[in-house]
Each structure stands twice: as C-alpha cells, then as structure tokens.
Design a protein around this nucleic acid. Structure first.
Lengths: 366, 366
DNA sequence: CAGCGGGGTTGACACGTTTTAATCCGATGT
DNA sequence: ACATCGGATTAAAACGTGTCAACCCCGCTG
C-alpha cells in the first residue's frame, strides 16, 4: 500500500526532520524496524519485556523517523491521560504562582503535563473550566475552589477523577486536601501585634464573597478572642479586591475617617499590606513606630519593600509539590489509597514593619 | 424520567450525575434519545444540520446522562485537539504571569484549554516540555524561546503545529511573532534619565546567557550611543538572576566598589530595580535626588514601592491576547494565513524614582 | 401519477494506540 | 529424540468520536 498522501497544501515547506511523511505513527516505526506494531508499543511502555537487540532496533527507528507517540490515541485506549489539571483562583497572585511552580516541577518530573486554569474567583468560570478539564480526560485535578463547599468538583469525582483540594481544608474525609492552618496563622499575627504593644487593631480584608477572605476574617476574629481582646478594639476595613490598589484605598479610608489610627494593622494579604504601607508612609505615618503592619503570604516583594514587611509565611511551593504528589499517588494506586488531609503550619516572619518600638532604636537607619 | 438529582448537595456520596454508569459515551446518549450516534455527533459539531426537534431530544439526553465528550477520541479522529501550549521562561515573574492571563482569557473564550509549561530558562527543559506538548497534539504553541534562535520549535513546525513566538522578535518571515520593541524601550529609559540630568549611568543586567538579558544589554548600549554618550559613562553590573535578591546584591556591589555612584541606574527588570532601591535607601542614598532609578516591565509592585519606581511599560496582557489570537487564526485558516510580526511600542512611565530634582517640588503630596 | 430533489438521519469505517490471547522458536529435562 | 516450557513476538480486537456516502421519507413538479 503506497500511502503517499503528500498532497499537503501545507505552509512551512519542510526542513530539518524527515518531513513530507504525512504522519509517522507506531506502524511506520514498526515496518521501518521490521517488527510488529505491538512490539513498538511494548518498547514504549514495557521495555523490559522486549529483547535488547530488537529494542535497540526499534529505538533507532523511532529516532530516525522522529516519531512521537500520539497522546490522544494513547489516552483513548488506556482510558486515562497523563495530564493533570490545576485550577487556581488568580494567576496574578504570586501566592498561586509559587504553588503552580511546585505543581509544575513535580508533574514535569513524572512526565505529566499540567493544564492550568484560572477561575478568576468566578463560580461560573470555574464550572466552565472544570468541564474542559473533564473533556480532556485529565488524570486528576488540583483545585482551589471558589465556593465554601468544594462541591464544584463533585461531578469530576463521580466520574472517577481524583480531586485534591488546594489551600482549602475539607471537612469531608473522602478526599485529599492540602492547606495551611489559617487559624494558627491569624493567631500568630494577632498575638505578635499584641506582644509588640498594640492595643487596637485594624483588619484589612478582601471582598467577603471570597471564601479566602471570609475564612481569614473568621480566623482573625477568633485569634483576637483567643488573645483576650474584645471585638471593640477591632476596626474592619473591607475592600473590593486583594491587590495593592485596594490596599491604598483602605489606608486612605482609615486616614480620612477622622478616628485615630489603630496601633497595628493586619492585612489579609501582602499585596494589600504593600498598598497600605505606601499610603501611610506618604502621609507621614511612621511604620512601625506609629502603626505596626503585617501582611500574609510572605511573597517575595515584602522583603524588598521600603520598610520590609512582616508577614505570615506559607510554604507555597511545598504546598504545590505535596498536593501534586498526593494527587499522583491517588491516581496510581487508587485501590489502596487512603485520603489524607495535610495541614501545614504557617510561620511568623518578623521584619521591620512590626518590630516593637522598644526593640528598634534605629529603624530606617538613614 | 424521574430525575431526582434536584438540589441535594448535602449528601456526600452519590450526587449529581448518575453514578455507577461505567462510561457514558455518544452511543449511550444516542440510544437514550432514540437516534444514531452519528446524529449525536452532529448535534455536538454541526447543530444546524439537525432538526430542531431531534436536537432538543439529544440535548435533553446529554443533560440527563451527564455526558461530556471524550476529547481524546475527538482529537484522535479529527487529527487536532482544542488545546494550545504556552511555554514561558519563568512562572515566578509577574511579566509572564500577566501574559499568561491574556492567553488564558482568549483561549478560554474560544473553548481552548491552555497547557502551561515553564522552561525555567533551561534549554533542556524547554525541549523536554515541547516534546510533551507534541505528544498532547496541541493545536498550536506560544513560545518564549530560551535560545537566541527560535529553532527549538522547528520540530513542531515541521509537524504542522503552528508556533507563535512570544516576547521574541523573529527575523524569519515564515512564522508569527509578538514582541515589544526593546530598542525603543531602552532608548526611552536612557533618554529619560539623561533628560533628568544624569551624566553617568549604571546598568544592572541579568545573566548574559539569557537571551532576554543579552538583548536588553545590546539595546541599552545602542540607546546610549544614540543619546550621544560614550561607553565610558556606563557602568555595567551583571548579576546572576533577575529577581529582587540579585538587585540587592548589585546595589551592594556598587556601593562597596568605592567609586562614586552613577547618577542614574537602569535595571533590566523591575524586580532588580526593587532590590536596588531597597539597598540604596537603607544606605541613605536619596532616590531620585542622589540617584535616579528606572526599571523595566512596569509590574504591579513598582507603583506600590516606597519610592514609586519609574519603569518602561509593556502591554503584557495584550501581548498574551494578541499572540493567542494570532495563533488561533493561524490554526483555523492555515490556508490563507499570512504570517505577521507584531511589534508593540513600550511606554515610559515616570514616577518619583526618576523625576528630575528640578521638576519635583512636592512629590509626596500628603 | 411518476420522478425528483433535498433535508434529516443512518451505518460503517478510520484515527493510532494498548492489550490480550495466541503463536513461534529455541532451549531444557527426561 | 520428544515433549515441554518460557521468553519474545505477533495478530487482532477494542477505545469513543468524526466523517461521508448512502438512504429514507416526504412534498413538489411536470
């Protein structure tokens, strides 16, 4: 059968690798190496089962023909692909970027590809993108759910696709999750601010619609209570987003309210804190002498800020790594897999922005 | 049809779609709707060819059975998938993050999924990940190549996979590319610094092995020459990475060298600039009074820095959008597609860090 | 009334791979 | 020398969808 379907109206007219060959599949490799397609498949998937001599011959043929396996056909036949889905809330947030790096590294090590999706904190987009992932027959999904309940992925789980919740503790025992102890983090921050001498506290938080924010707010309140302080010393400043601009907005509101500034401000997010910091400094407020400031996430830029920001560090990269390892484990041995809820402990990182006035004689040493 | 799956999100097990059903494919839908598989396929792909009545019936069946099309089979049969690959240099860089957002938005709009890869500025990883993309039979690839020559993707192009170069102008006419005019950007920055009164210039640049850095260095030199300045006024400070830590390192080296500081510093990257800024401020150097400072990329954090950083803005998000649109266009109508090299013009963003002492009477307006 | 045309629908095949059962061949044990 | 065994290889049957030619039905025209 002389299959010369070369009538390609193709654009880029061939160069480099053996071009012109319509599509080089397992069959072409087989005939070129003088074996059957089945053997080629074996070379690809269970090299140990094929004699060294033939294996070499096949590998040679693969190289010469520039064959790359067709993932679709493979997936179709095997029933599962070698890609995993990663759905984050916001790509622009360095927190998720770090997580994604961890995910990508592990996945890449194991030969998995990562399909990255961003829900943009929208329920509807989350659903739409999850559907795309389902169509792609991803092997599993790492999901930072938008809603409180992680049930947006129930559809996937019912279809037998493992789902690991990211940065979201789950009450349900029938799924894996990886998260950081938010309550402990809030406690660390609030206790630290109190220890630094603050009697009144401002709390800058994102839109309450966001699960993340709701959670962090609850956690802050609880930490306050645990610290023996009443809600009356707390001043909440809700803002519309979780970025630096919103932080500036929040600080302006605090300044213009006429009330005295709180002695310390806890921001639900480093981006917010950076914005707050800038406006305070511009207004001549001294940080931390007048107002102590602490953020959350410990993104890279906090350390580089004019007054280096205290923050609560989360093992973001590790978060991604562990979650991926958990997911791949669940994929590989779904039989004996025991779901586990991993909870990391956050770590307080104290920098200039919140050092007690007592211990810092010379902050900005210029 | 007693569909009792109405609003019962509470019960953990078995909810949503009919569970237990092995795999629901096009056939099951067909028999459930009393039509042939071919018709179901038509409903999915060419709805206009099927009568309204049957279409409704089929759609109903799809809904009831919770059918989602098997992308692998679809791809296999159709010969091309509905995913595109995006390979960036470094996920941790907000520049690429922004680009990725643009890509994701457009792709998502058109029903494409995005497979995100990071080469981590490593040639070997680029090759490995491109191979994975090839296996996945992506419809096309957006690539920010590591090497000077964008030939790492030639293998893909030969296989008929459209490749659009991202943030990398190409000399070759047989491919699309989207980039920002680096030379113009360098000129903007250098000219601006000179206009602000700087006579000597420091240039902090990343590892020369990186194409990005090599390019930006060349561009800076050229801009200098165009500005009528000799190389003798230039002081180069190469560093090992493109992040804030490296910037701090660079600034320290400048300070400790004993030579007088340059009157202005141009950083190849905002992250570097942030690091430089911090160290300068700590050392008591006034910005911009003593040293003017400008970065590149205009990432979000520059505006929020203690001394807001001047920068050269690139339309990052747009970069991603346009590149994706170009790619999808090339995919859809590969016949009549004319390759084009899009070149954006960068924009100078002047903030406090580089205002001439003359023009700023009152910078901090609070 | 016969022929015709066309929209709607159908079957069946092909896509490239994995996998299972069957086949082949040389070597081993008696 | 024959039966047997085991490793290496093969042939063929799926996997779920898209495509295309064929087909059917019905109304319309000559």
């Amino acid at each position: 059968m002389s299959t010369d379907d070369t009538g390609r109206p193709g654009t880029g007219t061939a160069s480099g690798a053996p071009a012109g060959t319509g599509t080089v599949g397992i069959k072409q490799v087989a005939s070129h190496a003088g074996v059957s397609p089945g053997t080629v498949s074996n070379v690809l998937n269970r090299p140990e089962r094929v004699a060294a001599a033939t294996r070499a011959r096949v590998e040679q043929a693969i190289l010469e023909l520039g064959f790359v396996r067709n993932g679709s056909a493979s997936t179709l036949r095997a029933g599962h692909s070698s890609t995993i889905g990663l759905m984050v809330l916001d790509l622009a947030n360095p927190f998720f970027t770090d997580v994604a790096r961890g995910v990508e590294d592990v996945a890449s090590e194991r030969g998995y590809a990562v399909i990255l999706s961003s829900s943009g904190e929208s329920d509807e987009r989350e659903q739409r993108n999850l559907r795309v992932l389902a169509e792609q027959r991803v092997r599993g999904v790492l999901l930072t759910p938008v809603g409180d309940e992680g049930d947006g992925a129930d559809g996937l789980r019912d279809r037998g696709v493992p789902v690991v919740l990211l940065d979201h503790p789950t009450p349900r025992a029938n799924q894996c999750s990886v998260a950081v102890d938010d309550v402990a983090g809030g406690e660390l921050a609030v206790r630290h601010l109190r220890d630094a001498g603050a009697r009144t506290l401002g709390f800058v938080t994102g839109p309450p619609g966001l699960r993340q924010c709701a959670g962090r707010r609850r956690r802050a309140l609880r930490a306050l209570r645990d610290a023996g302080l009443g809600r009356d010393v707390l001043r909440e400043v809700p803002v519309g987003a979780m970025n630096a601009r919103a932080g500036q907005e929040a600080a302006r509101r605090l300044l213009e309210s006429g009330d005295p500034l709180p002695e310390a401000i806890f921001c639900a997010n480093d981006l917010l804190a950076l914005g707050v910091l800038r406006v305070l400094l511009q207004a001549g407020v001294k940080v931390p002498a007048d107002v102590a400031l602490i953020g959350y996430d410990d993104i890279e830029f906090t350390a580089a800020a004019a007054v280096p920001l205290s923050s609560v560090r989360q093992p973001t990269y590790q978060l991604g790594r562990i979650a991926t390892e958990l997911l791949l484990e669940e994929c590989d041995e779904s039989r004996g897999h025991a779901h586990q809820q991993v909870m990391f402990q956050p770590e307080l990182v104290v920098r200039e922005s919140s050092r007690a006035a007592a211990e810092d004689r010379e902050i900005t040493q210029a």
